[in-house]
Design a binder for these strands. Structure first.
Lengths: 143, 143
DNA sequence: ATATGTTATCGGTATATACCGATAACTGAG
DNA sequence: CTCAGTTATCGGTATATACCGATAACATAT
């Protein structure tokens, strides 16, 4: 049968692709990818963070964040303004962005339910516990 | 504290990034990313597959595979030749590619051990079982 | 044998992601 | 206050990834 790779990172990337596909398909109706949805949620939660705040929180490279923000800005979902510290750029959800999140929420939740059902009782928590192992080991973005 | 996202795909992508980082750091010594390492292993295992064979096996989009192959070819790690069916391209490990895999194997294994240790006894199998949920649900590449 | 449908790959385009090296702005020691 | 060190962002470059629409090659029914 179809022998899957034993490389942990390869398996994780593979699972991430498959999982994302379902979210992406659902969110297409509101023109978002699940990556963008998650990013908007992070911005909402952090409430006008800087690029760097987001990088810390998401463990993404600051340069990645900068580029991702451009996409969201072009789509009219966020705005950026220089902060007190004029090196920084503060990211804010636009009105459109907030609405979009409202529209997306149900779609996201539907897929989340699907995966949780397939993971079975306690499956999600078990998975998250195991994934926790990969947190904080790689030195934080705050290099 | 640092509240992690509950979106399953976001968590998976995040864990995949962190896990990959360690492999990538180790494999840098032989000029490979873990994605490339895994890809070479798949090519080795399938023994002169077509792009499409690889796409099926890895569940990656054929167009993605085509582009990835270009990178490996430019690096001299594989060669491509038209197959019997002249629509297809058959991918073969080059001598350099085989050597590179030999050099990379120990480096890869070191990181694999690290993660397995951190996952604890049975942790890897438990993780793989849970990740299995994401297999085969999204309709296969063979759309 | 031909017309029709299917399959394998490729190219255009776009996003997500990372590393590295500027550059500008802040901070702290003296 | 000034200079050296640190930090935040950006731009160049590269890979991984996907979707869509060509195109060429195969397969099949008539």
């Amino acid at each position: 049968m179809e022998q899957l790779p034993i490389c942990i990172s390869t398996r994780l990337r593979r699972a991430a692709r498959q999982a994302s596909r379902l979210y992406d398909d659902a969110l297409e109706a509101v023109g978002l990818s699940v990556a963008q949805y998650s990013m908007l949620r992070a911005i909402e939660r952090l409430d006008t963070p800087t690029i760097n705040d987001l990088a810390h929180t998401t463990q993404l490279d600051p340069s990645t964040l900068g580029r991702n923000m451009k996409v969201l800005e072009r789509a009219g979902l966020i705005t950026q303004a220089p902060g007190q510290d004029r090196r920084t750029r503060c990211v804010t959800l636009s009105a459109t962005g907030k609405e979009r999140l409202l529209d997306a929420a149900e779609l996201w939740a539907g897929v989340q339910d699907t995966w949780e059902r397939r993971l079975g009782a306690g499956g999600r928590d078990e998975l998250f516990d195991l994934l926790q192992v990969f947190e904080g080991t790689a030195n934080p973005a705050a290099r």
